[in-house]
Structure formats: C-alpha cells, structure tokens
Design a protein around this nucleic acid. Structure first.
Lengths: 223, 223
DNA sequence: CCAAAAGTGTTCACCGTACACCCATGA
DNA sequence: TCATGGGTGTACGGTGAACACTTTTGG
C-alpha cells in the first residue's frame, strides 16, 4: 500500500534526549543504529510520527519503547529541519528532552526489543548520527538554563533524597561546584520540598535528612 | 504528478507571528483566508515547507511574501502538531515569530498579491483560524519574557529613536507602566545603544536625544 | 508664563555570594 | 579517635524598586 500526495511531503520524526543522573554524572540514552544510514553508529532514540499521533505522544511512546517508563518529565526542545540532515529523504525532527530519576531506571535493555542501547556520560559521548550532537548540545544548554529559574532539577530526584543528593545534581549539570550553605538556603526558600522526618544512613558518617518533593510537577520562574 | 510514500506523511507548514509596534500598541499581521477551511477568517501568515527548503528559510520566505521585508529578526517559537488542528489533513506547523521595526513597514498590501492582509492590535484580535490564537499567545509570552533578559526590544526600533520611544515599546509589550528613571538607568548599563548627538523636535516641547543601536543583532542574558 | 514631555540621583530593602566551624556516625 | 560527609549563620556588595523636581521648548 502506498500513500499519494499532490505535493511532496517531508517525513516527521521525534527524537528524544533522555537524561538521567548516574554516579554523579549527567548521562543520556543512546541507541545503536542497525541500518543505514549511520549503521552501527549511536543515535538518539526517536522515530516517525504516526499520522494520527500527537507529537508529544509520539515522544512519550518512543520513551516508553526504549525505557519502559511512563510519567516522565518531557518538554519540547526545538525542531530541526535542515534539508540533508537525513541522507535518505527530507526528515524534520521535533526534538524533545526527558528527565528520568535514576531509581526509575530498571532493566532498560529488557524493554528495548533486542536493540543495543546504553547510557553515556554527556562529556564522553561517542560520535553521533545525523545532527544529534547539535540536538544534545541544545538540550544541555536548555537544561542548564532552567536550573536557574525553575525547580526542574526535582524531576531527577527519587521519592526520598538528601540535600547533598540534590546539590550534586545541580553540580553535575552545571559543571561547577556550588557552596553548600548558599545552596541549601536557596532550596529552602523555594519551599518546594518537605522534610520526611527520616534519615539515610550512608553506611558510615552522619545520617542525612531525607526530603521529598512537595508538589508533583515543577515550578517555572522561581526567581 | 503525484508523490508516493510507503507510509503516510504529514504536511509541514511554518506559521509566523509578525509583530510590530504602531501607535504605542503591539500589533501583528493577519491574512484573511480565501478558501476552506476557515474561509474568510483571519489567520497567521504561513505556508507549506517546500521539500528542499530549510524551515527558517521557509518562514523568511513567507515573511517576505507578505511584507516584502528581508533582514528581519526571526526566531523559532514552537511546533504545533496536534492531529485535527487542520481538518483537511495532518498538518504540523513550525511556528516562528518576527519583529518588524515600524519604519520598515511600507505598503504591505502591495507586496501581498491581492490577498487581504491587515495589522491588528494584540488586545483586540478577531477570531483566528486553526489554533492560531494559541500560537499568538505563546509568541507574546515568549516576547515578554525575553524583554527581561535580552535586548530583543531593540529589534523594534528604527535607526534613530528616543529613550521615550524605547520605553513605550517595553510598556506596550509588558502591558504596564515603567519608571522612567529606572528604565533609563537600566538601558544605559546595558551599553547597547549610542547617542547620535542629534535631537528630535516633537513639534513642541523639549527636544529628545536620538539614540541608535550600537551593534546589530541582540544580546541574550544581559542580567 | 503655561503646558508638556525630557532629563536627572538618592535611598532602601532584598538577595546572591563569600566564607569556617561543629556535629553525628561507623570503623 | 579519626575520617567523612551533614549541617549551620553572618557580613558585605550589588541590584531592583520607589520616589520628585528641574529643564527645555512652543504656544
């Protein structure tokens, strides 16, 4: 079966930059391509938008197919449509980025049907297919900028976490150390997390208070 | 001639929110549709992306077709792709917004080949076709936000302008009065405009200094 | 001399930043 | 008792916000 149009239509895909935090590093999920072009190269998860599928729903579907996860923070990033970005045909890609709390990452490879997937540290990525390096760069800049005027970082946190955990998330995204006292003061004035009353015993050392996010979702423009 | 695909492809358009300032009001350009759907309703300028045409170039082309203008500030806004937003077929629209200095608006209707076009005040728009009201709303929010951390407002200014002119641009976009002294102080510290040494005699009253933008383009993150 | 817009400084409150020490725990 | 990360407060400087009067011109 074929589909006919009076004028040529581009193909439309969504690509997703799926971020997580692991070992105090910002990481993202890549997939090894099994076919041309860019065969055996790593690429962002993504795929064609179905003809009756909403763009965001398409991105959520891709996310679920690759990770098995639902209920993840997702935001549209930018639309890349330069002719020639895909050597096969004209492909316009609506890029999204997603933030996955580390504790929700189960067995990724089980969810992705026999495709080779892997998490990569942002600062040591392999060569990427298409213009995906550019997409990743923009996603990282957007994420970094949002740390400063929103509570988006809470999307990376598990149900219970310490202030030290949260600070490390900021630090590895921004790529710089932050002052502990100033950080805590600022987080507290945001009034977006609550003390659970519990403590985490980290094997050794003084136990740390455990906090939880007060309201699901995140708040923009907190400054 | 027809074009065949193995899978259905959506149509892709760009729509542009073309802003200008007129009579101390924020206005945008609309076009009256001559065909179904939404026949005789007002809509944003826009059109289909040609198969080998870059998205931004498509938006620039639409802008030139409707206004005859080139060299105008243009920025991608968001991509709208909800199925059903166009009743004919699946249409994904990459929305842009453009800022036109009032002195560059010549005879718009001459440029647009016999189509009915018009400038409308943002706060008294007619009913719009498709989801264009939503697009306009997002464009206005983006523009308002950018006033606070960039020098984007300079894109609206003619070659020479007074500080009062510039303040009125801020005021009509933000929808609130600003303090004259604080405004001037802030603009001066940005160091983005220069004194031309000339004055404008407004018919009566004290003449105002004329300024010009120092560097073309605009600066992000001035705070 | 009157009307109207242009132009100009100071004060205050708040916030971001710099900075150093004690605490609780397990080994 | 020691090693390690958890937890806390103050002082300073810069910036945004509030606020009123003089100047210049044309009528």
């Amino acid at each position: 079966m074929t589909f006919q149009y009076e004028y040529p239509h581009p193909a439309v895909t969504t690509d997703i930059v799926i971020f997580t935090i692991h070992d105090e590093r910002l990481e993202l999920l890549l997939i090894k391509r099994k076919s041309e072009p860019f065969r055996d190269q790593w690429a962002l998860p993504g795929g064609f938008v179905e003809i009756n599928e909403d763009l965001e729903r398409c991105a959520l579907r891709e996310l679920a197919e690759e990770t098995g996860l639902t209920g993840i923070y997702l935001e549209q990033l930018y639309t890349f449509g330069e002719p020639g970005r895909d050597p096969r045909e004209r492909v316009i890609s609506v890029a999204y980025y997603a933030l996955v709390p580390p504790d929700r990452i189960g067995n990724i490879s089980a969810a992705s049907d026999a495709r080779e997937v892997g998490w990569f540290q942002l600062d040591s990525l392999p060569p990427l297919a298409f213009d995906h390096k550019q997409i990743v760069g923009m996603a990282h800049r957007r994420l970094s900028a949002k740390l400063n005027y929103s509570t988006i970082a809470l999307q990376f946190m598990p149900e219970k976490f310490t202030l030290g955990d949260l600070q490390k998330v900021y630090e590895c995204i921004l790529g710089e150390k932050l002052d502990k006292r100033n950080f805590r003061k600022r987080v507290m004035t945001l009034d977006c997390i609550k003390d659970t009353g519990e403590y985490r015993r980290n094997g050794s050392y003084r136990p740390a208070r455990l906090y939880a996010v007060k309201t699901p979702g995140h708040v923009e423009f907190v400054r």
